[in-house]
């Protein structure tokens, strides 16, 4: 558990902060994620992916539930001016990135704005394809295409980083 906390607490808290933009709620979600792992570690199936991916999927789910419960998606979206969210690169808070993470984030930054914005709205704001389409005034098929194209590029970047020495 020491290794789990040390390796993943920053990622879990960072994602919760990014989705919730509220330190108190992010702490609650982080606590919830680790306590659930503590209570039932068998839920993690290493055959399906990394522990980091498992924890962050749980974090995302819990955080989005909070966002939806507070019906704040629309307010947050309007407050953000529908601009791509700028990554938090405060050196006091950011822990050094792994090569894989750097590759994926580099790929995200290199995406066209419309693809990056659609992915960030879906992931960080917990919006469905339909909700992203409505918010952007685009057809749902267009949004699916943008998200699919962007995600495929990032997946390819991750695969390349994992293959590289």
């Amino acid at each position: 558990m020491r290794e789990v906390w040390g390796a993943h607490a920053g990622a879990v808290y960072g994602l919760a902060m990014r989705v919730l933009n509220n330190a108190s709620m992010a702490e609650e979600v982080t606590q919830d994620v680790f306590v659930r792992l503590w209570e039932d570690p068998a839920r993690f199936d290493a055959a399906r992916g990394s522990l980091r991916s498992f924890l962050l999927a749980m974090t995302h789910s819990r955080a989005v539930e909070r966002v939806r419960a507070e019906a704040s998606v629309r307010r947050r979206h309007e407050a953000a001016g529908r601009e791509p969210v700028v990554a938090n690169d405060d050196p006091a808070h950011v822990v050094a990135s792994s090569e894989a993470r750097a590759a994926v984030q580099r790929a995200l930054c290199e995406l066209p704005d419309d693809q990056r914005l659609a992915i960030e709205m879906a992931y960080y704001e917990g919006l469905s394809y339909r909700e992203v389409a409505d918010a952007l005034g685009e057809a749902e098929g267009t949004v699916k295409y943008r998200i699919r194209t962007g995600m495929r590029k990032m997946r390819a970047a991750l695969q390349a980083a994992e293959v590289s020495p």
């Binding site: 906390w5 607490a9 920053g10 990622a11 808290y13 960072g14 994602l15 902060m17 990014r18 330190a23 702490e27 982080t30 606590q31 680790f34 306590v35 503590w38 209570e39 992916g49 990394s50 980091r52 991916s53 962050l56 999927a57 995302h60 990554a87 938090n88 690169d89 808070h93 950011v94 822990v95 990135s97 792994s98 894989a100 993470r101 590759a103 994926v104 984030q105 995200l108 992931y123 995600m151 990032m154 997946r155 991750l158």
Partner: peptide
């Protein structure tokens, strides 16, 4: 694709004391 998303966000150092509270809750 979850693996891809797991690398998307920056890591942020949790606030001091959070680990203690997690342990207490557990």
């Amino acid at each position: 694709y979850r693996e891809v998303l797991a690398h998307l966000s920056d890591e942020v150092a949790p606030p001091a004391g959070l680990q203690d509270r997690v342990v207490e809750a557990a």
